[in-house]
């Protein structure tokens, strides 16, 4: 019973990956719209873009990690 609950929890944690995808998409979309408004400033902000994507993605990875822990380590 406990194992099944852990699997359900892992599935729920997996939702976090999708939500992180929303976050990453949001970062990229805003970067793109900003870059189209002011293309000359776009190149200087790619580093910021990647940092933002990395932060957004890291949280999704955390939830994936929780899912893995529930699947394999609990």
């Amino acid at each position: 019973m406990e194992g099944e609950l852990a699997h359900i929890g892992a599935g729920l944690a997996g939702l976090g990956c999708g939500l992180a995808a929303l976050g990453v998409g949001n970062v990229a979309a805003n970067y793109l719209s900003g870059a189209l408004r002011n293309p000359s400033a776009a190149a200087s902000q790619t580093a910021t873009l990647f940092i933002g994507i990395a932060f957004a993605e890291a949280l999704g990875i955390f939830s994936f990690l929780v899912a893995l822990l529930l699947m394999f380590a609990v």
Partner: peptide, 16 residues
């Protein structure tokens, strides 16, 4: 914590 888990987590997730 986030610095290390980001790297390992991304790699592990993709390979898994």
């Amino acid at each position: 914590v986030s610095h290390s888990i980001r790297l390992a987590g991304n790699l592990m997730a993709g390979h898994a």
